[in-house]
């Protein structure tokens, strides 16, 4: 699906001007147009999560924009009612998904993007990549499958002070799906790491971090930007270490 295509439904809700400025592609997500969120909130196809704190929302936001920039297969996303107590993170509707199982490893086609997911998790210190946080959808021809990475809400990046304190550590005992084709994902992970190093120099990064913090009311934008920049500069090192960690588990 491409942005603005007929496949997308223009959602009926209002979005904040801040979100518009930050991530324009947030506006064309396919959302089931029902007022009852909970009906489709937990079915693995689309999620709407009302958060009690902003940290998870911040982690989702950073995971979303950085994932996009690194080439990870992350769905479109949006925030419903940003700034309000009932704000919710929306992840775009992915049609026909199943969750990860090891026996699917032979048939995933978007291995480079899938590998970029590892780089993303290493950089934002996301330990929560269990099998339900990886969706698979039918590819162009059976038995091919496309992988999607969802849910970075538990990443340490959502807690700027803790994220900074982690320095250059990666999740050493991640809750990660078993049977990932790590060897096949390595080239994509390394390419994404190199991309992360390039992105540090981009003024857009600071703008994105500041925008994300503003959306969720996080005051520690500078701490977050500083910690994220440091990790992205060292992305190659982080990703190599994380490949070792994940390879030993998978």
């Amino acid at each position: 699906m491409t942005r603005g295509s007929e496949d997308y439904w223009d959602h009926p809700w209002r979005w904040s001007a801040v979100a518009r400025a930050l991530v324009p592609s947030m506006f064309h997500i396919r959302v089931k147009p029902t007022s009852l969120w909970t009906e489709w909130a937990d079915d693995g196809c689309a999620r709407a999560s009302t958060r009690f704190g902003w940290q998870e929302m911040l982690a989702e936001l950073v995971g979303w924009f950085l994932g996009r920039d690194l080439g990870a297969p992350v769905p479109d996303a949006a925030i419903l009612f940003p700034g309000r107590a009932d704000a919710a993170w929306l992840s775009a509707y992915i049609p026909h998904p199943i969750h990860w199982e090891a026996h699917h490893a032979h048939f995933v086609t978007n291995l480079d993007a899938f590998g970029a997911m590892l780089a993303l998790d290493a950089i934002i210190h996301n330990h929560d990549r269990h099998k339900m946080n990886i969706l698979l959808t039918p590819g162009a021809e059976e038995p091919e499958l496309d992988a999607w990475a969802i849910d970075t809400g538990a990443a340490l990046v959502g807690f700027p002070a803790d994220f900074a304190a982690a320095d250059l550590a990666v999740p050493e005992k991640p809750n990660i799906a078993r049977g990932l084709p790590v060897r096949l994902m390595e080239p994509g992970a390394r390419r994404a790491a190199r991309r992360a190093v390039e992105l540090v120099e981009s003024p857009a990064l600071q703008h994105q971090v500041a925008g994300a913090c503003r959306l969720v009311g996080e005051q520690e934008s500078n701490i977050l930007f500083s910690a994220l920049s440091k990790r992205m500069k060292q992305a190659t090192r982080l990703v190599e270490r994380y490949i070792e960690v994940v390879g030993a588990i998978s």
Binding site: A105, H106, F107, V108, P143, E144, P181, L184
Partner: peptide, 8 residues
Amino acid sequence: YRFFEQWS
């Protein structure tokens, strides 16, 4: 054969 392709 897809398996062989996947694993190079």
